[in-house]
Design a protein around this nucleic acid. Sequence first.
DNA 1: TAGATTGTTAATCGATTAACAATC
DNA 2: TAGATTGTTAATCGATTAACAATC
Lengths: 213, 213
Amino acid sequence: MQAKKRISEAVIRRLPRYLRYIGELKDNGIEKVSSSQLGEKMGMTASQIRQDFSYFGGFGQQGYGYSVQLLFDSMKQILLKDQGFTVIIIGAGNLGTALAKYNNFHDRGFDIIGIFDINPKLIGKTINSNEIMCIDKLEDFISEHQPDIAILSLPRSETKDIAVRVANSGVKGLFNFSPMDLKLPHDIPIENVHLSDSLMVLGYKIKNFQEEK
Amino acid sequence: MQAKKRISEAVIRRLPRYLRYIGELKDNGIEKVSSSQLGEKMGMTASQIRQDFSYFGGFGQQGYGYSVQLLFDSMKQILLKDQGFTVIIIGAGNLGTALAKYNNFHDRGFDIIGIFDINPKLIGKTINSNEIMCIDKLEDFISEHQPDIAILSLPRSETKDIAVRVANSGVKGLFNFSPMDLKLPHDIPIENVHLSDSLMVLGYKIKNFQEEK
DNA sequence: TAGATTGTTAATCGATTAACAATC
DNA sequence: TAGATTGTTAATCGATTAACAATC
């Protein structure tokens, strides 16, 4: 086992991808895999896979490879808390609703336990057995249920204020969909999903695709 | 102007972020900015900003800095085609609908010109003046309107097939929301948005946040 | 002109890949 | 045991930062 060092952002971002591929192997009843087989499948070098896994202690056996089950369990343990994570969604517009109904979150260990909006027409409605609550109840709900994560699917203009409120109340991380870089006085992990940024990257690549060949 | 070399992925991914910040300066009526001012604002080094801009020829003047207007126009020109991009959305479920209503795409130069679904209950409905069409009409529509990009907001099981169909019909890039890595026989740009991967990264960071301090 | 700030080259840092001894 | 494949160290590659001559 390698000496414990800080895991780089690049490595962290590969972990969910490992989990997906290993889960697939498991679902196909495959019991063992070598770093070169997995590398082939994932389009990366065997070396990088072994290097990445070794940051967490290494899960393999020389001469054999990796047990898919062990790899899967280890990766889950690295990424999830024992009970998974609890999540609230703030903003029950189209995007918030879509996210509330998105089953992949639950399947990957993220449970939505509350949905909030300011619009009286939405409050009281139910999405996947979660009743939409008035945003006035945000602080009370958080202190009672201690959700780990708040998903912010709000208009840009509301995002900063609400982010400060949830961070103040003790939420541990933010998942932000507004097209802005949230800067808070609180030092907590924030994951931004900038859909139009991603689309622009795609546009750039399309534009420059032909001439690069 | 630096010799023309391949722009790295890292640089490309920063471009939309530059555009956002420069647009903000412009909206605030600010006329000039230096690399160090911009770096301060964006949380990056002045050196990186100058290096990045120089890949595209450099837009500044020694001793003065950068004209915000020129920077904005240049960045738009680098990222967008003259007429912007045309986009179709395939899959008008919750996520597809949310994306169809998401105004940021339009504001950034991406115009949605068609929406498709397989569900007869949705076909004929209208989202932002786009009527949802039956997926049977996909090929005809594409050959008539030549959209640049297809957004795939489909069930995982449908994604691969539809991706192949649109790529065959001449769509130039894919924006995929299914939790899988699309591998196609066609060599075209694909941008994956893996929401649960991002959420897992956030989970990991939350889990490891305290002990790192 | 003097001061400021660029664009670019060189130095550093970090991430990926290669190599190989350890060992199952 | 012999063959295979890991975990880890060393080498390479690429990206970021620093330095500075060019020049507005």
